[in-house]
């Protein structure tokens, strides 16, 4: 039966709003959020702050997926991409509402909220970020 795990519920700020964390010691930004800075180690303990990442960025690399995959079955084929956001953080996600033959490295994109998956017709709907072309 479809369930929402406590872990998934805790991840909502990240999946909806790109809330990561920033080390108060060295300034490094992490996404998903971390409670411990691997660079500063003990010096950084207790200094990690929530950090809202920019929703804008550019395509760093991408690939087109032709393998049938669950919820995306009605959107085949679809693009997945690494996005370097404007804070310099690398984010992985789907690239939608895009002409597949027009995707380019460096293309400006922005994160939007979309349905990621749903646990059948009776279960919970999982929302999170995907990327669309940013034409501004």
């Amino acid at each position: 039966m479809a369930m929402v795990s406590a872990r998934e519920w805790r991840e909502i700020p990240g999946r909806y709003n790109l809330i990561g964390s920033k080390c108060g010691c060295c300034g490094k930004i992490f996404f998903p959020s971390r409670s411990f800075c691997p660079d500063c180690r003990r010096a950084g303990i207790g200094k990690m702050e929530p950090f809202k990442l920019s929703r804008k960025g550019e395509v760093y690399s991408f690939s087109i997926n032709h393998e049938y995959s669950g919820f995306n079955g009605r959107m085949m084929p679809y693009a997945v991409a690494f996005i370097r956001n404007d804070d310099g953080v690398m984010l992985a996600g789907q690239l939608v509402d895009v002409d597949l033959d027009k995707i380019e490295i460096g293309m400006r994109v922005k994160a939007v909220m979309r349905k990621l998956n749903e646990d059948g017709a009776a279960g919970v709907i999982h929302y999170g970020f995907k990327f669309v072309p940013d034409n501004e």
Binding site: M75, V112, R114
Partner: peptide, 16 residues
Amino acid sequence: PAPDEDTVTIATTAAR
């Protein structure tokens, strides 16, 4: 709407 859009995603985009 695209298959991954619904009233929640439309409302969220407009509100943002």
